[in-house]
């Protein structure tokens, strides 16, 4: 991640995002119900939710940072720390385990030098384990950002990783 990016992810939210969050909150029956959606707006923009951003979102929803963070940290798909440009979610549940998830993980470690929970030195990928993606008929499966990939084998995995820069 470039330094410029990083700075922004701690800087006050730009007005457009604030308005987007306000709209999300407006839409909800009760403001706090929009918490997750609002966090996702921030995450989509910055890859993760920094402390200052969390506090800002909380204020927009009339919550305290503690209240919102209690929700944010419960979920595994709200990232509270910086991640790489692309997030690999490698399914580690049972069907994929049977069909070769460990081989996929080993290959990623070999190619990118990262274990689950780690980010490549160039900030390109973060590897995270994910529970069953509902793609068991194409196990082993993974997601990269919002794209789904199934029927992984050695070649397919390499080819897929090459696609994300």
């Amino acid at each position: 991640m470039s330094t410029a990016e990083q700075d922004l992810s701690e800087a006050p939210l730009e007005e457009a995002l604030r308005q987007q969050i306000a709209a999300v909150a407006q839409h909800a029956e009760y403001k706090r119900a929009a918490g997750l959606d609002a966090l996702k707006v921030v995450q989509k923009r910055f890859g993760y939710v920094s402390d200052p951003h969390l506090a800002e979102v909380a204020a927009l929803l009339e919550m305290t940072p503690a209240e919102l963070d209690g929700v944010a940290t419960f979920y595994n798909l709200i990232f509270r720390r910086p991640v790489g440009r692309h997030v690999i979610l490698l399914c580690d549940s049972v069907a994929c385990w049977v069909m070769g998830e460990r081989a996929a993980r080993a290959q990623i470690r070999e190619r990118l030098g990262i274990n689950p929970g780690e980010t490549t030195a160039d900030g390109r990928f973060t590897l995270l384990p994910i529970v069953c993606l509902g793609h068991c008929d194409h196990a082993p499966a993974m997601m990269v950002d919002e794209d789904q990939h199934g029927d992984l084998d050695a070649e397919r995995l390499d080819a897929i990783l090459d696609r994300y820069r």
Partner: peptide
């Protein structure tokens, strides 16, 4: 409503808590 992950949200009462914007 798009979830934020967590299997427990599938438990029907936890799902309601989640929709309320609380810890599910």
């Amino acid at each position: 409503h798009a979830s934020g992950g967590r299997y427990i949200c599938g438990e029907s009462s936890a799902m309601l808590t989640a929709l309320e914007g609380r810890r599910p």
